[in-house]
Amino acid sequence: MSNISCAFANRIIMKYMDGRATEKELALLRAHAGECPSCGEDLELYGRLMTDFNQECLEEAPDGFDDAVMTKIAALDITRESVQARVESFMCCASGVFSALIGVGVLLFLNKEPLLNYLAGNERFLNLIDVWASVSIFADRLSAGATAFMSSSAAAVAPYLSNARPTLLVAALALGFTRYILYKRVKPAKLGRND
């Protein structure tokens, strides 16, 4: 009499189906299946399935399969967008949005008087001015401070700048030339060629 339960026998069958059952487990299973008709039937049926599963099942694709696929592919019109192209299109979109915002800002600045006149006659806007008043005073102070700092800095740097013009020009040219050399070197790697 085998000393394993039907549940344990079932677990061994599943391990057998996974190809993980040991010889010892299979021996126990066979002994149990010899005494238990239900597990015996299970083992017989799963064994038949495994015999089928273990047969070579890789079918050969029909003759001319490769040619048929490649002909269809040759007829396709696919343009692939590289990562670099995606970055470039993103940058174009970003600069477009930025330009639009600048444009709107310039329009608002040029038409500030009619706009302010309109807002001055708008009650809702006038109610908001009280709320913004403290913010506005702070912004004015900040703006005045920044302007004073910029003016004093520009005045301090101006004498040196006028004498250093040729040096700056040479430095800018050197920087441009270096970038050009680097660009020419990096280009093949960016394309991702691996041979």
Partner: peptide, 24 residues
């Protein structure tokens, strides 16, 4: 990567490698 860099004929290598698996 070769295919993506424009060498479309390289795709035939992949077809050759996987056609039987996919077909089966």
């Amino acid at each position: 990567r070769q295919c993506l860099n424009g060498d479309e004929d390289c795709f035939a290598i992949l077809v050759g490698r996987y056609k039987n698996l996919v077909y089966s």
